[in-house]
Nucleic acid binder design. Structure first.
Lengths: 156, 156
DNA sequence: CGCGAAGTTCACGTTCACGTCAAATCCCCA
DNA sequence: TGGGGATTTGACGTGAACGTGAACTTCGCG
């Protein structure tokens, strides 16, 4: 059973490059809840679960949010998804409006923060570029022409 | 005395939005060293010190580096500045080349990481934009036209 | 010169985000 | 039907980055 949740925790962990402990910890904090368990009690992750975990890691790594903030964001999205599923037809119009407004405000807030971050990074890059120019000037001045800007090295 | 280092720690901390403990901690780790002390032993920060502290915070907040990594970056820059000051005329040509190459490689590495981060953020922003589009669609569908994309709120 | 605000050095405490055993249980394939 | 690897819960440990007194000294202004 549980064809919808085929992935084991170790498999997910390997795929995402984190430890199994991390995945259990995220569940412990209520950030996610693997869709299924085997008859013996083992966690089983659906593709949606894996996507959600990736989302958490993205918010952590890219945006630098702490797990509590991430929980708030996910919770708002969950309320929205709930509403959309219309399983809760009982919700009042005002409440639906509220949920929607919350989701929109969160997304707008995130976009503002993303824009800010990009702006700061761009400025940072300009500084780096200027600094590199100066370094190349010094290199030339020292008579070291082989030190140009293409010293690439790719490593994990 | 110490006209070059006029700022007190509390003043700097307020300006940068961190605690005085944080500034002392950075010094403890060797990330910075306030240019002066008063005759009584109080730290006195020069403008350059303040700039350096800002630099540390930028690397921490924007790039998400830990303090050890930041120390490495600053150390390489310091070696470079040292060399440029030519106080050390005794350094061999090979050594100067080495220092320069290191600085260039660090800057290039940083630029790569900045570019990566910007790319990821841009992708994230596209997702957010798409998500917002969908939300607006739902809002329209629900007959809530006043929920458009310009719900700005500025707060610290 | 007096005195309250600000700063100093230890040193221990705290929070976050996991790491790391241990002991028992489960999964799955030969 | 084994048996070796993967997972489970529970609990304690850890490293980074500070927070928080305590006890004392210094700063600088009225």
């Amino acid at each position: 059973m549980n064809d919808e949740a085929p992935h084991r925790i170790g498999e997910v962990a390997r795929k995402l490059g984190v430890s199994t402990r991390t995945l259990r910890y995220y569940q412990e904090l209520g950030l996610m809840n693997p869709a299924g368990v085997s008859q013996g009690g083992n966690r089983r992750y659906s593709d949606a679960d894996v996507t959600r975990a990736e989302r958490i890691l993205e918010l952590r790594n890219v945006m630098g949010f702490d797990l509590e903030r991430i929980g708030e964001i996910l919770a708002a999205e969950d309320r929205l998804a709930d509403m959309r599923a219309e399983a809760k037809r009982g919700v009042t119009r005002a409440r639906r409006r509220e949920i929607l407004a919350e989701a929109i405000e969160i997304d707008n807030g995130l976009r503002r923060q993303v824009a800010d971050k990009i702006a700061v990074l761009a400025g940072f890059d300009r500084d780096l570029q200027a600094h590199l120019e100066r370094l190349r000037g010094i290199a030339a001045e020292m008579g070291e022409p082989e030190l140009d800007g293409t010293t690439a090295a790719a490593e994990a």
